[in-house]
Write a protein that binds this DNA or RNA. Structure first.
Lengths: 265, 265
DNA sequence: ATAAACAGTTTATTGCATACACAGTATATT
DNA sequence: AATATACTGTGTATGCAATAAACTGTTTAT
């Protein structure tokens, strides 16, 4: 009795989707037995989005896949936006690596970013859902907790830690978005050589002049812009390169900060 | 005559939207005079998207704003996707800063990222359009040229330069995306304190336990997670912080590379 | 003079989220 | 046990979207 009152109290303040994610939604007391469940709906939606993309996800498709009518879903989830939020929350429910105190922060951050990018790769639609607030759901917050763990043994204040978490998660999101866009383009029938610009390198070399594009011109002519000289797409390497630069930058910040502290003593 | 043949030859290979952006689309030879123009359509579409967001942009809205029927637009632009590409291309037509050889690369990169972020801020829908290939249109390539200019005086090969351009433009895009998402949420009626989580900090402090969230717990309790102790949103500062870390990382890479070259001599 | 190529319009197709009213069902209250 | 209540899943309706196809009228090349 008291538990329920507490739950209802907290439920009031939270948006419906967030409340559901914490299990704070009231169970119906009367009426016919439910034939569906929120979990079932969310899982079906994830399957559809994984296979066909977010644009192909409709309430009707979810419902008919389950053998029900569109409107039945609204008895479980108030809106499509709430469904998307619950989908995000569900796919963030990953196997978090155990804490290994002996591993240094650099490796931990690398691990966190890879783990995060993986979510985007397995569920390409993840990057299509706009961010409308800081993470507020259980598994999303667990991801934040994991990100913060990478900074546990570094002498930074909470705001600096949050800034670094933002930088790392942002980098992962950006990598995930690019990868998704490329994959979607391929799925839509575009060839890798059209995406890399290789198909158009001949046309580009006529259109891009040295006068108008002084700095692009040599890079285009050498073939580096459209990656003519590469057997395979090196975009994965680009991602690693960027991550290492970011980690170098964080390391530099730590060293500079240490120095400042020493100097002031 | 010969010019037209050359144009048609190049047009063949390029996707319709790209071809139009280079002015390679054939002008009609017969029939009634055109009452619209591609430029007019693209500008109208940009105005609508600026004010109401990309989701509110429909072919019907563009056409009726211009006083025509929906289908008239298809006489000028083959599809909505092509319209989006031309919108992207148009807003990349900015005043590029003059080359200042005495400015160091760090300032140049900072300037490039700010300039790029500005495009996302003035045209929030820019980040909503997926990337389906490397830049191939005149103004987009001018942006790449500008980005490459920041690396002109640094001893890097073309692939390293492209990796750095990708990192910088990616960071700008990510910042632009977050800012856009926040602004859209506010425009949709969400309060800043709901976005920052401040409205829910009470509920979160009950739901987030030390056992389950060992690293998040202290940050949440201190108020740093929902920025309780800040008079104003400091996310702008977070963006600057991230950019400086990236620049530090690039600088570190250059120093390490120099050292390697020295050592091998 | 005539045919071809074009302009803008009308109509039709297919798909979307979701508001609302409905008939039937399980439970709480009396 | 009777009844009111809260709930179930469904059918219908609204108002949007992109764009294909057919239509009428216009301009120009032949």
């Amino acid at each position: 009795m008291k538990e329920k009152e507490l739950k209802d109290y907290e439920l009031e303040g939270l948006p419906s989707g967030i409340a559901i994610s914490w299990g704070l939604n009231r169970q119906p007391q009367r009426g016919p037995k439910r034939e569906l469940s929120i979990e079932q709906i969310v899982e079906t939606a994830i399957n559809i989005a994984d296979k066909e993309g977010l644009a192909a996800l409709s309430m009707n498709k979810v419902a008919s896949t389950l053998g029900f009518t569109t409107m039945s879903l609204y008895r479980y989830i108030p809106s499509k936006d709430d469904l998307l939020l619950l989908m995000q929350e569900k796919v963030a429910d990953i196997d978090y690596p155990a804490d290994e105190p002996e591993v240094d922060w650099r490796d931990k951050m690398r691990q966190y970013v890879k783990l995060s990018i993986n979510v985007f790769q397995v569920h390409p639609w993840f990057a299509d859902i706009p961010i409308t607030s800081v993470p507020l759901t259980p598994n999303q917050l667990k991801m934040v907790d994991l990100a913060l763990r990478t900074t546990r043994n570094i002498p930074l204040n909470d705001f600096e830690k949050m800034s670094i978490v933002l930088l790392l998660s942002g980098y992962a999101r950006w990598c995930g978005t690019i990868m998704k866009d490329m994959n979607m383009a391929i799925q839509a029938g575009k060839s890798p050589s059209a995406i890399s610009g290789l198909d158009y390198s001949g046309a580009l070399k006529k259109l891009v002049t040295q006068e108008r594009y002084p700095d692009l011109y040599p890079v285009l002519m050498s073939g580096a812009y459209t990656e003519e000289n590469k057997e395979e797409n090196t975009i994965g390497d680009d991602f690693d390169f960027g991550l290492e630069r970011i980690l170098d930058g964080i390391e530099h910040y730590l060293l500079t900060k240490e120095k400042k502290v020493e100097d002031s003593n």
